[in-house]
């Protein structure tokens, strides 16, 4: 446990999350995956946007960048493109990533830039007290969906896959071992990797929808999911309304920074006598 806490800025604890919130569980899974892989703390940059999930980075002992709402992936793209040797991890939520930040999400996936994105999906805007989000299931309640959600939800993993992400997986804050394992694999993938972690917001989502406390909500989430391996043997009627968990998609695709580096090398062979700009400035470059 002591070692685990070494990844935290202990002086910034306790965190602001509500009792029973699942974000700590997801953050813990991420830390265990990082620890297992033995990644260098000094070479990791954690980027987040706005929302409950995005507060996670403030407690972690890495270079951390807590940005504006929805833009974490765009900031992360700048970090990664400027310094590809860094391991860039985005911690985001369903609203941050798929509503206000949806455009950056799909374009980062399209580029297949080597960023690992952990989406803590609690189906609500917790920070602003429980409005419906792009992942609130149809018909369920939110403070802005008092008569039931009129809209239909995103399947975040299908969105990531269709947009070009090269690693896509889903787990929940109930299936912690699976979640840790999937994050570890995502961190190893060289490309845009997405792990959606279904997680519980008992304070707003659970209460508003009268699901019960954290335990009941966690069970409710668990019951919505079927492991992708088990699903292969199940008839379609058993899968109706279920979300698959496990490794959902993996593909070998050229990674953005690597392709850019290849292009740069080709350009530099052509222009090795270039005198236009400034190549110095060593201090400000890697």
């Amino acid at each position: 446990m002591a070692e685990f806490l070494d990844y935290f800025r202990k002086e910034r604890l306790p965190h602001i999350w509500c009792p029973g919130c699942g974000h700590g569980t997801v953050t813990g899974a991420l830390i265990r995956a990082i620890d297992k892989l033995g990644l260098d703390k000094n070479k990791i940059v954690m980027v987040s946007g706005i929302g409950c999930s995005s507060r996670a980075v403030g407690y972690l002992d890495f270079d951390t960048l807590h940005t504006t709402h929805g833009r974490a992936i765009a900031f992360a793209t700048g970090v990664k493109h400027a310094k590809p040797s860094l391991k860039v991890i985005v911690m985001t939520g369903d609203g941050d990533c798929t509503a206000i930040g949806g455009n950056h999400f799909i374009h980062a996936a399209r580029r297949n830039i080597d960023i690992t994105t952990i989406i803590m999906n609690n189906s609500t805007y917790g920070m602003t007290s429980g409005q419906y989000s792009p992942t609130t299931p149809h018909g369920m309640l939110g403070t802005t969906a008092p008569y039931g959600n009129v809209e239909h939800e995103f399947d975040v993993c299908e969105l990531a896959k269709a947009s070009g992400a090269s690693y896509v997986a889903r787990a929940t804050s109930f299936h912690v071992t699976l979640l840790t394992d999937l994050i570890e694999k995502a961190l190893m993938n060289k490309g845009f990797s997405v792990v959606e972690a279904l997680t519980q917001c008992p304070t707003y989502f659970g209460r508003k929808n009268k699901i019960g406390g954290p335990v009941e909500l966690l069970n409710w989430i668990k019951d919505r999911t079927v492991n992708v391996k088990a699903a292969a043997a199940l008839p379609p009627e058993k899968l109706a309304g279920k979300l698959l968990i496990g490794e959902l998609y993996k593909a070998e695709r050229p990674e953005y920074c690597a392709t850019y580096a290849e292009t740069t090398a080709r350009v530099q062979r052509t222009y090795n006598d270039y005198k236009g700009g400034n190549r110095g400035c060593e201090l400000n470059s890697d």
């Binding site: 504006t68 765009a74 900031f75 793209t77 493109h81 740069t264 700009g277 190549r279």
Partner: peptide, 25 residues
């Protein structure tokens, strides 16, 4: 690219300045 600098055409101007701030960091 001629001297190892990085260019990227982002999906919008919000992303553009965000990426610049990330790079500056």
């Amino acid at each position: 690219p001629k001297f190892g600098g990085k260019f990227i055409q982002m999906e919008d101007e919000i992303g553009s300045i965000a990426a610049c701030i990330g790079a500056s960091l």
